[in-house]
Amino acid sequence: MSRLGGHQAEGDLAPPRASRQDHSAPLERDAQQDVDALSARLGSDVRSMFSRSLHIRTVDTGSCAACESEVRLLVAPHYDLHRLGLFFTPSPRHADLLLVTGAVTRAMDGALAKTYAAMPDPKVVVAVGACPLGGVYSEDAMVHGDLESVLPVDVFVPGCPPSPLALLHGLLVAAGRLKEKVEASDFCFRGELLDGGAPEGGVPLR
């Protein structure tokens, strides 16, 4: 019988639960406890702020592909971001959080700026890995060297590559940062437009 079909699939899909009962190594058990503890905090923050819908857009600006691998694993069964109300979205217009990996190549300037501009306010930028921190490549004709010279960065997640656990922690910090921005934002337009622009510290309704 195919093990991908039938009743077995559900049990197979739940490795964290199964692994704690079964034959997991001590190392893995500790990691899983960390994942669960972080997840609980992250989940409650995200739930309270966004009713379970904080959306993430990723942009690769010249990584070595290891960071991408770790980011992809965030939605894998061991970490499973979706249960926390965090989702990856292909559209920047739906995204609250921009996750940037890589050495910030100048060739990606246009694409990165367009992605950032397309995101609605308030938004946070998370720099993932040593490259956008400026720890690997120095500035030259090909790369900016760090992300902060291009975009306002809210959270840096160090690591080469940062493990999914470090990324979860970074997202937790970023969710807190976003909460501050949301609270500081004046979503309701009450008053005159200043010079036809947005009111002080706020976002006009259009």
Binding site: T58, V59, D60, T61, G62, S63, A65, E68, S69, V71, R72, V75, F88, P90, P92, L99, T101, G102, M108, A111, T115
Partner: peptide, 10 residues
Amino acid sequence: GPVRGVAQES
């Protein structure tokens, strides 16, 4: 592209 799916390379 160059910005493609979730955590895909540019």
